[in-house]
Simulated assay, not measured.
Amino acid sequence: MKEYEVYSDLRVPVNSKIIIRLDGRSFHSFAKKMELEKPYDENFYNVMVEACKDLFEEFSPIFIYAFSDEINMLLDKIPFKGRFEKINSVIASFTSSSFTLHYNAEFPKPVAFDSRIIPINDSDIYDYFKWRQDEAWRNCVNGYGIHFLKSKYSSSRANEIINGLTLSDIHELLFENGINLNDVDIWKKRGIGVYRKNKKVIGFNKKESKEQVSYRSFIHVDYNLPIFSEGFFNELF
C-alpha cells in the first residue's frame, strides 16, 4: 500500500534554504469570537511571540518574522530529511499546539495553522521579507483605519469607505483625526523578529587569575525591527 503515498518522497533540494510560512486558519472569525482588542490585541501578540520562541527552540531557524497571524521561518538546517509532507504537517501542528498552550483560554473551536514551504535562494531572501514587511505596514494602516471608521459609522459603511481609499488616504484621514501612525509601536508597523544574538559574559579564570570574556548566544525577540535592508540579512548569516 506504500505506493498510495504519492507525495511521500517529495523532498526539499539538498543544501538549500527554505522559508516556512504559517498562517492562522480563520483567525478573523477567531478574533471576533474571542473579542480581541482592536486594532491590536497585545495578549494575542504575546502568545504569537511565545509560539515563535518554541519554533526557534525546536527547529533552530536562522530567522523568524511574524505579524498579524502569520509566521515566516527561514531555515538552513532542514528537518525530517527534507520531506515536504513531514515538514508541513509537523510544523503546522506544532505551532497550533504551542499557540493553544500559551493562550491558556477556552476556544470556541480548535485552533489551526496551515503551513507552506518556499524554497529560496540567498539573493531572494531580502526581497521576500521586504514583501512581507510591506504587508505588515499595509495591515497596520488598514487596521487603524477601519477601527477609526467603525467608531464613526456602521461596519458596512466603514468597509465601503475604506475600500475606496489608498494607504496614503487612510494615513491622512487618521492624521486629520489626531491619530499619528508615527507614534504607533514599531512592532505594529514592521512586525516582530526572532533571531539569535550574542551577549558578552565576563567571568574569572582561576587558573590564570584574571578576568575572561566569552560570548553566549541567546534567542532575541526584536520589537524594534528596522525597515529591512540587504545588510540586515547579511548580518544574520
Score class of each variant (00 low, 15 high):
150 K>Y: 01
208 E>Q: 11
90 V>C: 12
170 I>S: 00
88 N>E: 08
119 P>G: 11
211 E>V: 05
131 W>M: 11
236 L>R: 15
112 A>S: 13
104 N>M: 05
142 N>R: 14
10 L>K: 08
179 I>V: 10
231 G>C: 02
136 A>D: 06
237 F>C: 08
107 F>C: 08
222 D>N: 14
16 S>N: 04
43 N>D: 03
84 F>G: 04
212 Q>K: 15
176 E>N: 12
171 H>D: 15
164 G>P: 05
149 L>Y: 04
99 F>K: 05
68 S>G: 08
18 I>N: 07
96 S>Y: 11
146 I>R: 00
231 G>H: 13
104 N>K: 05
228 F>D: 01
198 N>W: 08
192 I>Y: 01
47 V>F: 08
218 F>W: 04
18 I>Q: 04
110 P>Y: 10
4 Y>R: 10
202 I>G: 04
143 G>C: 03
85 E>T: 12
219 I>F: 09
195 Y>F: 15
128 Y>G: 10
158 A>H: 00
31 A>S: 11
34 M>Y: 04
140 C>F: 00
6 V>G: 02
36 L>H: 01
53 K>E: 12
17 K>F: 08
71 I>G: 02
27 F>G: 07
57 E>G: 09
73 M>F: 06
173 L>V: 08
199 K>I: 06
72 N>P: 03
206 K>N: 09
